[in-house]
Structures are given as C-alpha cells and as structure tokens.
C-alpha cells in the first residue's frame, strides 16, 4: 500500500483535516510526527493517508485556506504536492 504524508505546522490544523476527511469523505488517516528529513521549519505533524487520496486532501487544504508544507511520499519523502 502506497502512503503519503500531508505536512502541517499546527496540531490543530492536522486534527481539523483528519476530522473533515473522516466526517465528509469517510477517509481514515493517522497523525504522525513529521520525519526530520522533510523540511517543515521545526516540529510539526503530518497526516498519513493512502496516496490515492492526496488530491482530495490537497483540494480540502486549498478550499479552506489551510496552511500545509506539502504532501510527500512516505517511502522516499519525494514532494508530490
């Protein structure tokens, strides 16, 4: 299974996106610490989701004006959004 990490600075934002994904799109996700290898200006949280949902999350972020550092592949930290 291919996963990606949606990186946020704020614990509130990561929880908000997790909550909306579940309630509105029935998409499960998991909050994890952002790996140091991903540039995120210090401590941050990421939402681990299946890569097939990356577009859904990205649209959600853009539509709501949320702040995200981007979406990265979990396997090699390649930035995909």
């Amino acid at each position: 299974m291919d996963f990606c990490l949606v990186v946020f600075a704020s614990a509130t934002t990561v929880n908000r996106v997790k909550s909306v994904l579940l309630k509105k799109f029935q998409i499960n996700s998991e909050i994890v610490q952002t790996p140091k290898a991903i540039p995120a200006k210090g401590c941050s949280y990421s939402l681990k989701i299946k890569t097939e949902y990356a577009d859904v999350v990205w649209n959600l972020i853009k539509e709501n004006g949320l702040s995200s550092k981007g979406i990265f592949r979990e396997s090699n930290f390649e930035k995909i959004k």
Binding site: A9, S10, A11, T12, T13, K41, G42, C43, S44, S67
Partner: peptide, 17 residues
C-alpha cells in the same frame, strides 16, 4: 512554545497557536 514552527523565533501567525 506552541509545538509548531519551532525553528522560528517569532510567534506563529496561525490560530490558535
């Protein structure tokens, strides 16, 4: 401390942080 933007000395702009 807010747990976010830890490398920055200025207070984050993002709410609620």
């Amino acid at each position: 401390g807010t747990g976010s933007y830890s490398k920055e000395l200025s207070q984050p702009f993002e709410l609620p942080d």
